[in-house]
Amino acid sequence: MDMLRRLLELLAGDPQADRAVPPTGFTARLTLLSSGAMAFLAVFALALSLATGRLADRWSDELAKTSTLRISAPADQMQAQTDAAIVVLESTPGVAQARALSADEQRELLAPWFGPDLPVETLPVPQLIEVIEDGDGFDATGLRARLQAEVPGAILDDHTRWREPLVEAANRLRLLGFVSMLLIAGATGAMITLAANAALAANAQVIRVMRLVGARDIYIARAFVRRFTQRALIGAAVGTLAGTLAVLLLPSADAAGGFLTGLGFQGAHWLWPLVIPALAALVAFIATRQAALRTLKEQS
């Protein structure tokens, strides 16, 4: 809170103190460019992180509520076993709905591998039953035992086996996004520190004169910190705007496109990029303040 107050006071500025330190060309451009570029990258890291977060949540929530029952039986017993399985499922607590997929639906599922004209009816393809859970779901172990007794050809797949790695992968990607943002913040801080050190070295004579007339270190540091914080804020605001526009121009999410077309912001997530310029300013404030105070201590 104290840091935020100081940051706001700093941004409010002291025009007279600002004038004491002459603006230096290349450090100004370096700070603007690096904070802008880093903010641009941060928008994508944020978009990746939020999109994978949504994906992990969706896989975690939606797939956890569905299961598939696969019935492998001779053709003459298939319908009887399917009916028996549905009876078992409908009488199982925690099952909201059980529905045998139609031949068209099964053909559609196989179409990516065998093409659209596969004669499903003539092939020994297992019958699939979609099971939708309600509430806390069903007792998978108990259901398997009942099915083994009443429908010998039924195999229950509650998606746990392949859902968990997917959710874990999505969570890892989300973590990767956050780590990327931390690295971007660290790199921004390092570049601004270098620029601030260069500016302090270039203004050694200004510092000497200000000390001669009784300026305290914190006063001198503030003049540099304010300038670098403002530059980082402006650069990051431009970079964030450009990054957000680039994300906006990505293809919209659709089922066929899969994950990549969903790599953007949705709903209130569009407000998150607004945090990036503020964070960049905070990073610049901390980096420049530390660099300035350290350099002033070394020069004394």
């Binding site: 004038r19 002459p22 914190i218």
Partner: peptide
């Protein structure tokens, strides 16, 4: 260093080379 700064406000110094901020 802060105390030195305070003391320098009580001592006026004129240097041979003056030492100004040339942009002001």
């Amino acid at each position: 260093r802060d105390s030195v700064a305070q003391i320098r406000r009580r001592i006026g110094v004129v240097h041979q080379d003056c030492q100004f901020l040339d942009h002001l």
